[in-house]
Design a protein around this nucleic acid. Structure first.
Lengths: 251, 251
DNA sequence: CGTGCCAGGTGCCCT
DNA sequence: AGGGCACTTGGCACG
């Protein structure tokens, strides 16, 4: 249990010194901006980051129940009855979060030295790159033309040419493909047919696909290839693809 | 600065008593599961919720740099050199996060009594409901048939009939519509034409639409109506729509 | 800056 | 449980 004045000092110091601020206590939360919300009294965890990020967490679930991205201006106001912390952001839209603490269990500020970035393996981008190294895994005679080929209506993951010289649009998904993936691929294929003319094939490549999506895929004359991959370190590996690829993702 | 043994006690108590656990300090993070990641030494904030939620935050940005949803089993191990906290989840997939603290600035546990749920205003669902109250805002003579009409390939927000008796699929977006919104609506329209036959119109209704999306919309023969709304409390209001609607969202 | 899209997306609701 | 989708989505990369 912490006094409100003391808690306010902790928050203010964090704001002054660009430290991380953590407050735990009972509060109500009000939000107005892109939407509006209210949250009645309950125990919550408030996090304020040096960059203005503002997060209110409940005692369960991953997602913050109220939040505001970097750039928020934070103000505090303490009275005998409580502590109010307000976050206001003007860009890209005027947004306000107000947290009213009626009890503070903890309030602290911490310096956060950290210049490290996450190294992630197994992203779609990585899989897409790997796959392009050897398109024969998908089909014999398939040759890569362009990666992340940008079109006005989005970018095809891989643009290739098959043994017959037909254009092939390949959409790679790192997880189960649904209807959205099929419509996305379909959009690219139609766009390419209109721009380039001639036969344009479309291949969806993912670990699995839902029944509805597969049915729609067939109706649209598109193709499906199961993508069997393993996540590894320093890089992922496509099963059946043995070509070593150490130049990308040098460790 | 806190001793590792002491920090371990704080974490263990939180796990025992189903409390929220907060740890701040310098650590390295390793993740393996749906993907794999590494994060070198730096100051981070670790949050462990009673339901097993596990969050590692850096000093900036909104999103946790490493995380695990509810259901993770957490174990701790302290030595002279550090404190290691591990979160492992088996469902829906085996996933592991390992956080190795080389310095602990704070470790605490807090009870989190909270049975309140967020009341949110201005969701797409709410706007969709409001809009259906008076479809004349969109077009004279438009009559609502069904809300959230479920089809095997997704649900149309609003299914309506125009003055000529033609079926109209309406897709409502609470924010700027892009290509995805157009393809989504297009999918519903094509599905309805195949199932019901006859003329089926499609109307996209959003505050704004990107240039590309609008071009594609027109090419597909779909229609666009600007949705002008205000977010309010206890409920949102569609501009030009004056019908009072107090039965939903009773305050 | 807008536009598009991936995300270890998460969470919700529906069948 | 599987599927489709909204989300105050966030975050990034590219034109």
């Amino acid at each position: 249990m912490t006094g409100f004045a003391e808690a306010k000092r902790a928050v203010d110091e964090a704001l002054d010194k660009a430290k991380l601020c953590v407050v735990v206590g009972e509060c109500r939360v009000r939000y107005e901006g892109r939407a509006a919300s209210k949250l009645s009294e309950g125990d919550r965890l408030l996090i304020i980051k040096p960059d203005g990020t503002f997060l209110v967490h409940q005692g369960s679930k991953m997602a913050a129940i109220n939040y505001q991205g970097p750039g928020a201006a934070i103000t505090t106001a303490a009275s005998e009855g409580g502590l109010t912390v307000t976050a206001q952001r003007l860009k890209p839209l005027k947004e306000t979060i107000e947290v009213e603490f009626s009890r503070v269990d903890f309030a602290g500020s911490f310096e956060m030295r950290d210049d490290k970035k996450l190294k992630l393996f197994g992203s779609e981008r990585e899989l897409s790159g790997l796959l392009m190294q050897d398109l024969n895994v998908l089909e014999k005679g398939l040759r890569p033309l362009k990666k992340e080929s940008a079109m006005p209506k989005g970018a095809v993951d891989i643009l290739a040419e098959d043994a017959l010289g037909h254009l092939v649009a390949i959409e790679v998904k790192r997880r189960d493909a649904g209807l959205a993936a099929v419509t996305q691929l379909n959009r690219y294929v139609h766009e390419l047919r209109k721009r380039k003319g001639g036969v344009v094939r479309g291949i969806l490549c993912s670990p699995s696909i839902t029944a509805n999506a597969h049915k729609m895929l067939e109706q649209e004359g598109l193709e499906y290839v199961k993508l069997d991959y393993e996540i590894g370190n320093p890089c992922a590996k496509i099963r059946g693809l043995e070509k070593k690829q150490r130049d990308l993702h040098e460790y």
